[in-house]
């Protein structure tokens, strides 16, 4: 499904060179649920941006769904994001001027679906996340958990093969966090490949596989031990 080989990412300014990822390798299979963990500054966010085609990388090879996406044009990467990838952000990132319905509508518009198709899809995913009755609400009128459900609905509306979640429960209290995690697991059971970045070992343990990043590399030594250390520390 996703294959990264020797990905490097170097940020350069006039004076400093920062290696965010070094010779990074990762393979994720169809239908997997992978949690990416690692301490602050380890390269998690960079990984997420590259995986989600939000950022270009310096060198290496990245295949998504069997296709090389290393050197696509800006318009083509937009297309890939739109059709194949769903994003769930820590800060929900709903557009404050748009109501729930219109927020979920955003990726579908860029997909070019007709009105009837969009309406049907939006209603289905909102029903799935349990917010069918809140279509006309503005984000500000919803709780954090509800907002994140809208964001998930938005990510799923285009039926992506692949969902990228960045600390999806980071801004939520633990009870809401659990219900969101249940939703994500359910989506995964439906066949969608999921990569979730988190620093919370309990959440990471809900995933099928854990990958730990340290200093821009996958730290292959027993991931569970690492997590245990972090948990203890």
């Amino acid at each position: 499904m996703l294959s990264m080989q020797n990905i490097s990412m170097v940020y350069r300014t006039d004076t400093v060179e920062t290696h965010a990822l070094r010779q990074f390798n990762l393979d994720v299979g169809e239908g997997e649920f992978v949690a990416i963990t690692g301490p602050s500054g380890s390269g998690k966010t960079t990984f997420l941006n590259i995986a989600g085609l939000l950022e270009k990388f310096t060198s290496g090879r990245y295949e998504l769904d069997g296709k090389d996406v290393s050197s696509l044009s800006d318009a083509a990467t937009s297309r890939v994001r739109n059709e194949k990838i769903g994003f769930v952000f820590q800060g929900f990132n709903l557009i404050p001027d748009l109501n729930v319905f219109d927020n979920v509508d955003v990726p579908l518009r860029y997909r070019g679906f007709n009105g009837a198709e969009r309406k049907q899809r939006i209603e289905r995913v909102l029903d799935m996340v349990g917010l069918a009755s809140r279509q006309k609400h503005l984000p500000a009128q919803l709780s954090g958990g509800q907002q994140q459900r809208v964001a998930i609905a938005r990510a799923l509306a285009g039926e992506p093969r692949f969902l990228l979640a960045d600390e999806p429960t980071g801004n939520l209290d633990s009870q809401m966090a659990m219900s969101i995690m249940e939703l994500i697991q359910e989506i995964n059971r439906g066949g969608t490949t999921i990569i979730m970045v988190t620093h919370d070992p309990t959440l990471a343990n809900l995933a099928g596989r854990n990958v730990h990043i340290r200093d821009g590399r996958v730290s292959d030594s027993d991931a569970d031990t690492q997590l245990a250390e972090v948990a203890v520390g």
């Binding site: 937009s78 297309r79 994001r81 557009i95 404050p96 955003v106 860029y110 938005r154």
Partner: peptide, 16 residues
């Protein structure tokens, strides 16, 4: 800026 970058993440092309 926020809105725009979210739209980009959700698949909006520059031309959109």
């Amino acid at each position: 800026t926020g809105d725009i970058s979210v739209r980009r993440a959700l698949g909006a092309r520059r031309s959109d």
